[in-house]
Amino acid sequence: MQAIVKKLFSLILTVLVISFLTFIIFSIIPGNAALAKLGVDASPEQIAAMEEKLQLNDPVIIRYGRWLFGALRGDFGESLQYSGVTVGELLGSRLPVTMVLAGISFLLIVLLSVPVALFCVKFRDRLPDRILTVLGQVMMAVPAFFLGILITYIFGLLLRAFRPGAYEGLSLRYLFFPALSIAIPKIAMTVRFLKSSVRGELSQDYVRTARAHGASEDQVLKNHVLRNALIPVITFLALVIGEILAGSIVAEQVFSVPGLGRLLITSISARDYPVVQAIVMYITTVVVSLDFLVDLLYRLVDPRLRRGG
């Protein structure tokens, strides 16, 4: 219990430190919010007036405090590139798309990796395993955006399974293809990780015992080995979720899906820092909370850790 509280404390600290660092850095770089809002043609007086209005002349610490209190109440300020739109509204409209996209990718990864890994272990060091290993090796070397382009070409232009660039609504059918491009390299990584985990378990004593009791190879794999082998995979999958979020930044760009990632890219180009800051905070929180959840899950799955505290 004490360990959990400690972990929770360090979680909050991490989020705070990162929010402070990004805030400081954004306030150091040249070109402030007033300039971004008014454009380069604005006169010095206009800029001064806008700076006054946005309270940009206050010390950084005070501005950070103001931002933090706003953020805690869910108020991240106003976007600079779309005037009159709050960052909250902007994020709210883009978030569901990215969530669905990430969800489909995650499902694809989990649903495909386990059977493929088990298949490889069953045929270990024989032809099917060798072929899949080489294929996995190649897949890990494919940049996500190139995979996206290939999928666009094959499924979009040749097979006409979807119309590239014509995304509307929350279309699952359309989102399946960007999700596939995010998932494929991750599947290769997960299969490889799972395979080595299963192989490690196969040399354990309990496997020999199960075999001695007359369990078939399939039974040993499914009933005994898989459960134990999945434990380290939990951590791995948490890392993968972070990678999916990063992958969706690129995939949304390739498939022109209006999600969080695309918003991040356009906001970086437009120097719309309130939006960038909010997205950074969002992703930080997700990554750090996942780390925390994994820790909890570990304690649930592995009783040895609970006693050790």
């Binding site: 990162i18 850095i25 890392l239 990063a246 992958g247 930044i249 970086i268 930080t284």
Partner: peptide, 21 residues
């Protein structure tokens, strides 16, 4: 540890948003 738990593409994007393209 904190830095390593973040996806690297995201960090690269952030640094570039500070530094400019």
């Amino acid at each position: 540890d904190i830095l390593l738990s973040f996806p690297s593409v995201l960090l690269a994007l952030l640094l570039i948003s500070f530094l400019g393209p």
